[in-house]
Design a protein around this nucleic acid. Structure first.
Length: 426
RNA sequence: GGAGUGAUGGCCGAGUAGGUCGAAGGCGCUCGCCUGCUAAGCGAGUAUACGCCCAAAAGGCGUAUCGACGGUUCGAAUCCGUCUCACUCCGCCA
């Protein structure tokens, strides 16, 4: 959430920020209106409580001296009733302020290119040579079915559409990629490996910004205040919730492997085939908690950390900078990594790296202290996929495919998979 | 799932016939003194959030906070209810 005091002192900056994001700038005015009402009610109730506290003290004194205090008590009864009413009012207004604050999106960073939607995103660099095929490249789902390494039909039988069962070398490829990515990010890029729970509570989801607004993108456990995590970002970012870290601990860098569950509400008809858009996929997620003044440098480094996996796997990709209109609600700045998918002839998102500044840190109360005497400040949080495994499988299958239906495995992965080519059964 | 115990400040730990308790005491930490150095000793200080005053900082005033929420009361760390978490025992499991 945004800083309420900052909004009070220069609301125009926030209105403009929301406009850049094509969000509703009048949210700021709504907020300020309720905030003022809240502060007025608060001042009044605190004044009455002050009266009450003094009177209570006087009553205590009288009683100790054996004097009669019944008149004072009767008088205070009225004050107390009024306090009770005002307290309800204050609570109601305070809830309203908090709810609005939780709903208002983050403001884009000054460096983010203006734009309306994804059409206006800006490619910033390209890496790798797209493979040239002397034949018509097949889509990955066809390759996978032919190699008998992924089974969508039976997954639909077991669960439903948008699920997959990996089989044989497909299952091992999934496992090999997870191991490879975790090893890579821990040993090469200095992340601490984490293995979180796949279920998180509502407080955690509010902390990362998935609730209250985006509950319908997740699977909720029936009758419980628990959700299946849509990404390991949720448990990893909440790991230090309500803590005050020492500045010397920063940056905190976590790499967590998890399954990710997405309801994909509203995406009917999109990417209905293959591994691109499933209700469950696995991912290695990178999360950083950093000093505020370093967060944009850390974002650039995060992009490199994610991109270096693609380079190690020799998968062609590009980096695009997301424009203001296409930014998610929580982000101040975001880069997507898009991997080349030869069969469709398009780049597909395989990683998304974002800076949230203190938007999540405020929600999750993630703070640090510069030294023993200084006041706690909010950290900046960042995260990026490093990478989405299902889409990496798809990219490896499509980019490594050969005319005979076999698939060449990237060299870096061979020690993990045990073979350098996946061939169709005879 | 059943039975029980507990939750107080950075940590430990007092505080139940409700009233000068934001909370004794100790440890830790900070500053000063003392000391050849260290240790010990002595003195002072040491929570957070929010609102108001102030151009701002400094500072001042006020309110709230003893797991959370709600209730009783003029007044709650202390009484009542609900919940959460932790621990112990039993059962059940990987």
């Amino acid at each position: 959430m945004l800083d309420l005091r900052a909004i009070r002192s220069h609301p125009d900056e926030f209105r403009q920020g929301l406009e850049r994001k094509h969000a509703d700038p009048t949210l700021i005015d709504q907020l300020l209106r309720v905030d003022e009402a809240w502060r007025n009610a608060l001042a009044e109730v605190e004044r009455l409580k002050s009266v009450r506290n003094k009177a209570s003290e006087a009553i205590a004194k009288k009683k100790r001296n054996g004097e009669d205090a019944s008149a004072d008590i009767a008088q205070m009864r009225e004050v107390s009733d009024r306090i009770k009413m005002l307290d309800d009012e204050v609570r109601r207004l305070d809830d309203e302020v908090k709810e609005l604050l939780l709903t208002i999106p983050n403001i884009p960073h000054a460096s983010v290119p203006d734009g309306k939607d994804e059409q206006d995103n800006v490619p910033v660099r390209y890496w790798g040579d797209k493979p040239a095929f002397p034949f018509e490249p097949r889509p990955h789902w066809e390759i996978a079915e032919r190699l008998d390494i992924a089974d969508f039909e039976r997954a639909a039988k077991i669960t439903g559409s948008r699920f997959v069962v990996y089989k044989g070398l497909g299952a091992k490829l999934e496992r090999a990629l997870a191991n490879f990515m975790l090893d890579f990010q821990t040993s090469r890029n200095g992340y601490t490996e984490m293995f979180p729970a796949f279920i998180a509570n509502e407080t955690s989801l509010i902390g990362t910004g998935n609730l209250p607004k985006f509950g319908d993108e997740m699977f909720k456990l029936e009758g419980l205040p628990y959700y299946l995590i849509p990404t390991a970002e949720v448990p990893l970012t909440n790991y230090h919730r309500d803590e005050i870290l020492d500045a010397s601990q920063l940056p905190v860098k976590y790499a967590g492997y998890s399954a990710c569950f997405r309801s994909e509400a509203g995406s009917a008809g999109k990417d209905t085939r293959g591994l691109i858009r499933l209700h469950q996929f696995q991912k290695v997620e990178l999360v950083k908690l950093v000093l505020p003044e370093t967060s944009y440098d850390e974002l650039e480094r995060l992009v490199e950390d994610a991109a270096s996996v693609l380079e190690a796997l020799n998968l062609p990709y590009r980096v695009i900078e997301i424009c203001t209109g296409d930014l998610g609600a929580k982000e101040t700045k975001k880069y997507d990594l898009e991997v080349w998918m030869p069969a469709q002839g398009v780049y597909r998102e395989i990683s998304s790296c974002s800076n949230f500044e203190d938007y999540q840190a405020r929600r999750a109360n993630l703070r640090f202290r510069r030294d023993e005497t200084s006041k706690p400040e909010f950290v900046h949080t960042l995260n990026g996929s490093g990478l989405a495994i299902g889409r990496t499988v798809a990219a490896i299958l499509e980019n490594g495919q050969q005319e005979d239906g076999s698939v060449r495995i990237p060299d870096a992965l061979v020690p993990y998979l045990g073979v350098d080519v996946i061939r169709p059964a005879e």
